[in-house]
């Protein structure tokens, strides 16, 4: 495919400035890492997403657990969470810019709004679907209050929580890119904007490749392992 692309480019099937050849993209890629502009971008983006995601994780777990355990909260705020989740998180950007100003916090806020609701909802459904039998068994063996939560409810809800974390990550990643494209001084999204403004299509493509690779790596390494470990332990493979 890459060869066809290269050949098509060489014989001039389309204007060269609109779509670069693979070799040009590769050159930009190498160059980008060499002059550190890509590395700076990746670090800036990763910093935002890690901070944003960690906050989402903590907030999402806390909120999901309380929704799952406290009926009153679920009935009042639960539907609100569901409603808000339909809103693409980038829609929070104007608000975030007004609240936090033109800075990191605004983008991190958008990332949080992307991830945290899906973690909340998955945690809530996980907690609500814990078989009552396990709760009785836990109670029978002396589990109460926070011990019950830590030793029975959270482990029992873990399969669902992991699904939520995975989904939350991909939402966070998307939100971050959208946020950086719309407004950011550094970061991968900003490199894309820069490429467009300079009419440097090979930079645009090179950055897109970097974004895909990071997304894949996190999904394959972090979440795939997390999920596999859990599945093996629970014996879900056979089912």
């Amino acid at each position: 495919m890459i060869v066809t692309w290269e050949v098509a480019h060489r014989i001039g099937l389309w204007p060269k400035f609109l779509f670069p050849s693979p070799s040009e993209v590769l050159y930009t890629l190498v160059n980008g890492f060499h002059d550190k502009s890509f590395i700076i971008g990746i670090i800036a983006s990763m910093r935002r997403i890690v901070i944003g995601y960690l906050i989402s994780l903590v907030a999402g777990l806390a909120l999901g657990l309380s929704f799952g355990r406290i009926k009153f909260l679920e009935e009042t705020l639960g539907s609100l969470a569901l409603g808000l989740q339909t809103l693409p998180s980038i829609c929070w950007l104007p608000l975030a810019l007004l609240w936090f100003g033109l800075n990191e916090s605004a983008i991190i806020f958008v990332v949080i709004m992307g991830a945290f609701l899906s973690i909340t909802i998955a945690t809530e459904s996980g907690v609500k679907n814990v078989p009552p039998l396990w709760l009785r068994a836990g109670r029978n063996m002396g589990a109460k209050g926070h011990r019950m939560l830590l030793e029975v409810i959270i482990p029992a809800a873990l399969p669902s929580i992991i699904v939520g974390m995975k989904q939350g990550w991909s939402f966070a990643w998307r939100s971050l890119m959208a946020g950086e494209l719309s407004y950011a001084s550094v970061g991968l999204g900003h490199l894309l904007t820069l490429g467009r403004e300079l009419n440097d299509m090979s930079q645009v493509l090179a950055v897109m490749i970097v974004i895909i690779i990071i997304g894949l790596l996190v999904d394959r390494i972090v979440f795939a392992n997390l999920e596999r470990g859990m599945r093996e332990r629970w014996g879900l493979e056979q089912v």
Binding site: P131, L133, W134, R136, A137, N140, M141, G142, V152, P155, A156, L158, M230, R233, W234, G235
Partner: peptide, 15 residues
């Protein structure tokens, strides 16, 4: 914990 139930479906914890 002075009275323990062994449930019909055992309720062992898979994790």
């Amino acid at each position: 914990t002075d009275r323990l139930v062994i449930f019909q479906d055992l309720a062992l914890f898979p994790w």
